[in-house]
Amino acid sequence: MALTFEVDPAFDRALRDGITALWVDVSNAGGAVGFVPPVTDEEVRPELVKHLAGMAEGRTHLVVGRDEDGTVAATAFLTHNTHRLMRHWIGAYTVMVHPRHQGKGFGRALMMATADAAQEIEGIDAIRLTCRGGTGADRFYASCGYKEVGRIPNAIRVAEDDYRDDIIMLLPLFR
């Protein structure tokens, strides 16, 4: 079984609901995608709307992976940098694979599909992403070719007494 990836699919209610459900499930399983569990659809939807606004404006691209049932099982959003001196790299956000698919190589497949999508965008030389320290995500991204290029200690507070580093990683794209 493998995921089928699509870049910038037509956005409809089913896709919206699929991404929302994925985001909730990943968050509630402890995934570091902007929330601390427990989280609900109502909390996630406003964040998804921000990504959708970027898509409508042409500054954000969606990479979506569907499982054999057509269910949204993975996503990554690629957002163009708007600073005139930094338009040569793109940011990856809300990178997630459904918990039931973890350990199947789908995360690596998502990162490959994301890199492929970024390489198709004219003028993009690299992908930048950040991840929450203490989760092991930095080791995963390093295994996908990303290099740690910065770290902000204690930048993320997930609880009153639990601070995590914000780790900045970069993947140069070779054309």
Rank of each mutant, 00 (worst) to 15 (best):
residue 140 F to Y: 11
residue 165 D to M: 03
residue 90 I to K: 03
residue 45 R to A: 09
residue 68 E to Y: 07
residue 53 A to R: 14
residue 173 L to Y: 08
residue 101 H to D: 07
residue 50 K to C: 03
residue 29 A to D: 07
residue 68 E to A: 15
residue 40 T to E: 15
residue 17 D to F: 05
residue 84 R to F: 13
residue 151 R to K: 13
residue 174 F to M: 10
residue 5 F to C: 09
residue 63 V to I: 10
residue 63 V to C: 08
residue 139 R to N: 12
residue 115 A to P: 01
residue 44 V to L: 02
residue 112 M to H: 12
residue 120 E to A: 13
residue 90 I to D: 06
residue 66 R to L: 03
residue 148 E to T: 10
residue 159 A to H: 12
residue 15 L to S: 07
residue 47 E to T: 13
residue 30 G to S: 06
residue 150 G to W: 12
residue 123 G to E: 10
residue 70 G to P: 07
residue 166 D to M: 14
residue 85 L to Y: 14
residue 79 T to N: 05
residue 166 D to Y: 15
residue 142 A to E: 13
residue 67 D to F: 09
residue 76 A to R: 00
residue 167 I to D: 05
residue 138 D to V: 05
residue 149 V to G: 10
residue 105 G to H: 08
residue 113 A to C: 02
residue 139 R to F: 08
residue 123 G to C: 08
residue 132 R to A: 04
residue 46 P to C: 14
residue 48 L to W: 03
residue 34 G to Q: 09
residue 7 V to I: 14
residue 97 V to F: 04
residue 126 A to K: 05
residue 24 V to Y: 01
residue 118 A to R: 00
residue 99 P to N: 12
residue 140 F to D: 03
residue 16 R to A: 08
residue 165 D to R: 00
residue 163 Y to H: 13
residue 141 Y to K: 04
residue 42 E to Q: 11
residue 3 L to T: 00
residue 169 M to K: 01
residue 79 T to I: 06
residue 17 D to E: 14
residue 158 V to M: 11
residue 73 A to M: 11
residue 38 P to G: 07
residue 12 D to I: 12
residue 122 E to N: 13
residue 159 A to G: 12
residue 161 D to A: 10
residue 146 Y to D: 05
residue 138 D to S: 13
residue 24 V to H: 00
residue 160 E to V: 12
residue 64 V to K: 00
residue 13 R to G: 09
residue 144 C to K: 06
residue 17 D to M: 08
residue 71 T to S: 12
residue 74 A to Q: 02
residue 3 L to W: 01
residue 161 D to E: 14
residue 100 R to D: 15
residue 125 D to C: 00
residue 60 T to P: 06
residue 112 M to P: 01
residue 51 H to I: 01
residue 168 I to R: 12
residue 27 S to Y: 12
residue 130 T to F: 12
residue 84 R to L: 15
residue 144 C to G: 01
residue 80 H to N: 10
residue 76 A to G: 03
residue 169 M to V: 01
residue 171 L to D: 01
residue 16 R to F: 07
residue 29 A to F: 10
residue 114 T to M: 05
residue 117 A to E: 02
residue 11 F to K: 03
residue 110 L to F: 04
residue 67 D to N: 13
residue 49 V to I: 11
residue 157 R to T: 05
residue 99 P to A: 10
residue 77 F to K: 00
residue 7 V to C: 12
residue 15 L to F: 07
residue 125 D to Y: 03
